[in-house]
């Protein structure tokens, strides 16, 4: 545990996490482009999935990442890695949601008019770097099973 919060700044910690997430996504072999999003604001990270490098019939997809560190350095972060493409709208989230007991959950809807379905998901770590590689692993598995 980290303890001393005298110099803690949640926005600075969150910005640093987003920069780290962008760097890890740039390293991932199935991501083609990554950028701060929206342009100029950099409150999220957007990534294009390199579908052509996967064994799948899916043709395009985008991953949008939000991350906000807790109010203190010991608080849990809230984050979401949400995929949207021609055949999917789903993501792995870590935040309070009345539809599911756990902070960690997977949510999906079959079409834009439908409601999301939710199921608990346990992240093996909540370090931003680790979450990138974990989500990319389960995302690639999911896309290749389509």
């Amino acid at each position: 545990m980290s303890g001393d919060d005298s110099s803690y700044d949640a926005a600075e910690a969150s910005h640093r996490a987003l920069r780290g997430i962008q760097r890890e996504l740039e390293r991932h072999p199935t991501i083609s482009t990554v950028r701060g999003f929206p342009s100029g604001e950099y409150t999220q990270v957007g990534a294009e999935v390199a579908i052509d490098r996967l064994d799948t019939d899916v043709t395009e997809g985008t991953l949008t990442v939000r991350w906000f560190a807790g109010g203190t350095s010991d608080d849990r972060p809230t984050f979401s890695f949400h995929y949207s493409g021609e055949n999917g709208d789903f993501g792995w989230h870590h935040e309070p949601n009345p539809h599911v007991d756990a902070w960690g959950h997977f949510q999906e809807r079959v079409n834009p008019a439908a409601s999301y379905d939710y199921e608990p998901y346990t992240f093996s770590s909540v370090n931003p770097t680790r979450v990138v590689w974990e989500v990319m692993s389960v995302l690639v598995s999911r896309l290749q099973s389509e």
């Binding site: 803690y8 640093r16 370090n127």
Partner: peptide, 10 residues
């Protein structure tokens, strides 16, 4: 990567 993205001292 890990040390550069922690929220507090570890």
């Amino acid at each position: 990567s890990v040390a550069g993205t922690v929220s507090g001292p570890q």
